[in-house]
C-alpha cells in the first residue's frame, strides 16, 4: 500500500514538473509566431489536448473490446474513467480552438470539417457518458457502453485525417504535412515537450479517476453485502 502511494506521489510530482516546464517553454522559450503573434501560444496546449483526447478514446475502445471478451469489471471501469478524461480534453480543444480562431480567422466558429468532426467526437462520448449514467441495469449498461465506445472511436481517425482529406480553413498538419509544412526548431521542441507533459497528465488523471471509481465499487459491494 505504501509503495502504491509512493508511486502515485512520484507520478504526480513528475507530471507537475513536466507541465510547469511545458508552460515555461510555451511562454518564454518558444519565439512568437510571425503573423499571429503571441496568441499562437495557445497551440502548445491546444494540440496536446487533442492528442490526449485521442489517446483517451483509444483506451475506451481497447478497454471496451477486452471487457466484451473477458467480462471483467475493471476494464469497464478503465473505459469509463478514460472516457471522462477524453471528454474533458475534447471540451478544452473545442474552447481553446475558437479562442485562437477569433483573432486569426475573425470568427469563433466555422463548420469546417476538422471543427465539425471534433464537435461530433465530443457529442459521441458525451452520449457515451450519458448512456452509462442513465441505464438502470449496470451490467447491461456496461455492455452497451462498450459497444458504443468501440463504434464511437471510428470518428477519431476521421478527425485526424480531415485536414488531409478535405480543403479546410483549419491549418494543414505541421508535422508530416508535406512540403511547406513544419515548425521552427524551438517551436517543435516545445510542442513535443508539451505532448509528453500532457501524456503524463493523462496517465495521472486516469490513475486518480480509476482509483476513485474503485472506491465507489467497494462502497456498492459493501452496501450490497449489508442488505443481504
Amino acid at each position: 500500500m505504501k509503495n502504491i502511494k509512493l508511486t502515485y506521489l512520484v507520478l504526480i510530482v513528475i507530471t507537475y514538473m513536466l507541465v510547469l516546464t511545458g508552460l515555461y517553454l510555451a511562454f518564454i522559450y518558444a519565439p512568437p509566431e510571425k503573423t499571429m503573434g503571441d496568441v499562437q501560444r495557445i497551440f502548445y496546449f491546444h494540440v496536446p489536448s487533442a492528442w490526449v483526447s485521442f489517446i483517451a478514446f483509444f483506451v475506451v475502445c481497447l478497454a471496451g473490446i477486452i471487457f466484451l471478451k473477458t467480462g471483467k469489471e475493471q476494464w469497464d471501469r478503465l473505459a469509463a474513467s478514460s472516457a471522462e478524461i477524453g471528454v474533458l480534453f475534447i471540451v478544452i480543444v473545442l474552447i481553446t480552438g475558437p479562442l485562437w480562431a477569433k483573432p486569426v480567422w475573425n470568427t469563433y466558429w466555422t463548420w469546417d470539417p476538422r471543427l465539425t468532426t471534433s464537435f461530433v467526437l465530443f457529442l459521441i462520448y458525451a452520449a457515451y457518458l450519458m448512456l452509462r449514467s442513465y441505464v438502470s441495469n449496470k451490467e447491461r449498461g456496461a455492455r452497451f457502453a462498450a459497444v458504443f465506445g468501440i463504434i464511437g472511436f471510428v470518428d477519431v481517425p476521421i478527425v485526424y485525417m480531415s485536414i488531409r482529406w478535405w480543403r479546410t480553413q483549419h491549418p494543414t498538419p505541421v508535422i508530416g504535412g508535406g512540403s511547406g509544412s513544419g515548425l521552427a526548431p524551438e517551436m517543435l521542441t516545445t510542442l513535443m515537450f508539451c505532448l509528453l507533459a500532457f501524456t503524463f497528465l493523462y496517465i495521472t488523471l486516469l490513475v486518480l479517476r480509476y482509483q476513485s471509481e474503485g472506491v465507489v465499487k467497494e462502497f456498492q459491494a459493501l452496501k450490497h453485502k449489508l442488505q443481504n
Partner: peptide, 28 residues
C-alpha cells in the same frame, strides 16, 4: 487584444482541470 484570447484560453484549461480534480477529490 490578442493577448486577452491567450489569457482566456489558458485560464479555461487550468480551470477545467482544477474542477475535474476537485470533483474526484470530493467524490473520494
Amino acid at each position: 487584444n490578442k493577448i486577452l484570447f491567450l489569457f482566456l484560453a489558458y485560464t479555461f484549461i487550468w480551470t477545467a482541470l482544477f474542477i475535474f480534480l476537485l470533483s474526484i477529490a470530493r467524490k473520494l
